[in-house]
Simulated assay, not measured.
Amino acid sequence: MVVRSKRSLQNLAWDIKKKENRMKNCSLKEIGNGLLEAKTVLLFPHVQMDGDALGSASAICRALRTMGKQAYILINEVVPANIMFLDDGFCTTDMDILPNPDVCLAVDCSDISRIEGRKTVFFQGTVTMCIDHHVTNEAFADLNFVDRHAASTGEISYRLLQQMEYPMDALSAQALYAAMATDTGNFMYTNTTRETHLIAAALFETGMDHGKIGVEIYQNSRPEKVKLTALCFASMEFVGEGKANIALITQDMLKQAGASMEETEGLVEQMRNISGIEISCIMKEDDDRIKVSMRSKTNGDVASIARNFGGGGHKKAAGFTLEVPMEEAKVLVKNAILQQLKSLEG
């Protein structure tokens, strides 16, 4: 690895603060140089973390530790069972583990609400950074690298580590491959590009165990999740002449199945797999809020629906939160879906 002599993080932070507005976008080189100069780094995957968020953060955290830096992934929730293998002692819930870190890096986060319970710690960083690929990214950090054409933040993370001249190892490659696979539907979604496959091929050169990734993520469900899936699908309602479906996850369902909210991951994609469905939606009861996850198959734009409710995401995968009772929330969501379907007719 080449050691670069660059201006200090303090000077970088001062230059940023002199600007009236935060930087809308920067280069990966600027992100990489900041990480190379840092001694302490906290990484922040988004709440309700998925394979892309945790896989990307894990690969970067491993690289930083290999370089001799203090690095942790700060979370405030349980890691989903199917991606727990990505946490190799990186994740912590200790908000004080690295006081005033040199860099706080948000990973796969489109806006500050995605790290709401940790944002106070995030802004304690001398420099805040964000790497992301969501079209709805709000550039909330000091330095933001947002590539809306990237299929996953895993792709961006790979390019970042290349920029930092990190010699890719098999475990980091597995984390990045998991990130890319989960955000592209195992390379089936239309966001998958030639670049996606080229990066995947490069990761194979490390000798990574891609078979383990498949087993851990897709063939590792607890019986309790299967029970929850049955209850969820039993609640499914088809709307818009069978072009959309809406299903519920309630606290009673979780108790009845003995499952956790993290085990709802992937259900909305299964709903989209149904023939004739263009838009699928799962509404999750979480305390006094309803968390809504939406997916589309071809031309439906669920990001536009999410934006109308203060959320965000991609055209084919988005979400938002409603602070109203489930019955009222379902009416709002149903009407929004019907409007989106109607717009596709014209």
Results as ranks from 00 to 15, higher is better:
194 R>Y: 15
158 Y>S: 09
145 F>Y: 15
117 G>Y: 10
145 F>Q: 06
152 S>Y: 08
182 T>S: 13
132 D>Q: 09
206 T>I: 08
106 A>I: 06
184 T>F: 04
112 I>Y: 04
114 R>E: 03
128 T>P: 01
155 E>T: 03
179 A>P: 01
182 T>Y: 09
211 G>P: 01
201 A>H: 01
113 S>W: 04
156 I>D: 00
102 D>E: 12
160 L>G: 00
173 A>Q: 07
153 T>I: 05
108 D>G: 02
98 L>D: 08
142 D>Y: 00
143 L>A: 05
176 L>F: 05
189 Y>K: 01
177 Y>R: 07
176 L>P: 02
177 Y>G: 06
111 D>K: 06
195 E>H: 12
196 T>V: 09
177 Y>A: 11
152 S>N: 06
181 A>C: 11
171 L>D: 11
189 Y>V: 11
102 D>K: 03
159 R>G: 00
148 R>Q: 14
168 M>W: 11
121 V>H: 06
98 L>K: 03
126 T>M: 14
180 M>W: 02
167 P>S: 15
106 A>F: 03
136 T>L: 03
174 Q>L: 04
196 T>Q: 08
204 F>H: 14
129 M>G: 04
107 V>E: 01
105 L>R: 05
114 R>Q: 07
153 T>W: 01
208 M>D: 02
131 I>T: 01
150 A>V: 02
194 R>P: 00
127 V>A: 00
